[in-house]
Design a protein around this nucleic acid. Structure first.
Length: 248
DNA sequence: GGTTATGTTATTTC
DNA sequence: AGAAATAACATAAC
């Protein structure tokens, strides 16, 4: 359930807990001082990339849903509770996720300008970081959370299709202007994805992710695990240009 | 029943 | 030391 926009959506679903005090904190996640959390007022909620942050006056609780994470708002699921926070006006329960207790100030921990959905996102810096590894596959560069925090495999596949770039292209072979538009598209699609989540229509908009046919040329899409991370790439061999050296 | 999947981190190996 | 490969984790859907 991850990817940045989904976490922003989750934050919105939980916004009524801001200002409330934790009545009970429970779960099996190690490293959470449950007793200490109880009685604390939730002062803010933030996201960073695929992470959700519960901000208390002197600490933060960070949730990462990883691949199989689940949550339930004002209800429970029939599985091992990783972390549950009960407030006067409701509760939220997290399962199969990673939770961390953070004492360090967030501004020290996070560079908000690399989060594609953050107001302070700096596309120029993302471009500069990307170009530092010219031999890297573009499909892997897009998933690098230190370059584009919040971008996941769905967004990756969709932006490559939209900008008509083959996932196996090398960063250093793609014209810089194309890289720029690709980064812009990550931002644009992330906000669209957030809107789709709000409307509950996010599953209706994927053009290539888990699809069989190219919407442009009606030819079959390819599905391959590319790169050392071996994440699934869905792409059209015909309309997505492969940028590699001539002697490759 | 095996495979796959919106992802990251710890451990092992080179 | 540090990069790179591998394992681990946990759950639902096909």
């Amino acid at each position: 359930m991850p990817e940045g926009p989904q976490m922003v959506f989750l934050k919105e679903q939980l916004s009524h807990f801001v200002g409330e005090t934790v009545v009970e904190a429970k779960g099996r996640e190690k490293g959470i001082p449950y007793d200490l959390v109880e009685g604390q007022a939730l002062v803010d909620m933030k996201t960073f990339g695929k992470e959700l942050l519960f901000c208390f006056p002197d600490f933060t609780i960070r949730i990462h849903l990883v691949l199989f994470g689940k949550y339930a708002i004002d209800s429970t699921l029939n599985r091992a509770l990783q972390l549950g926070l009960v407030f006067e006006n409701g509760e939220v329960n997290f399962y199969a996720c990673k939770c961390r207790f953070i004492k360090e100030p967030l501004d020290k921990m996070y560079d908000w300008t690399i989060d594609v959905i953050d107001k302070s996102f700096n596309p120029q810096k993302a471009l500069e970081k990307m170009v530092l590894k010219p031999r890297q596959l573009i499909c892997e560069a897009l998933l690098d959370q230190n370059i584009l925090a919040g971008v996941g495999n769905k967004i990756k596949n969709e932006v490559l299709f939209r900008r008509q770039i083959h996932p196996e292209s090398l960063v250093g072979e793609i014209p810089v202007e194309k890289l720029q538009t690709l980064i812009e598209e990550c931002v644009k699609l992330s906000f669209e994805y957030l809107d789709w989540k709000r409307e509950g229509t996010d599953n209706d908009h994927w053009e290539v992710y888990k699809k069989k046919e190219c919407p442009r040329d009606r030819v079959p899409l390819l599905k391959e695990k590319i790169g050392k991370s071996a994440r699934s790439c869905y792409f059209c061999d015909k309309c997505q240009k492969l940028y590699i050296p001539d002697n490759f």
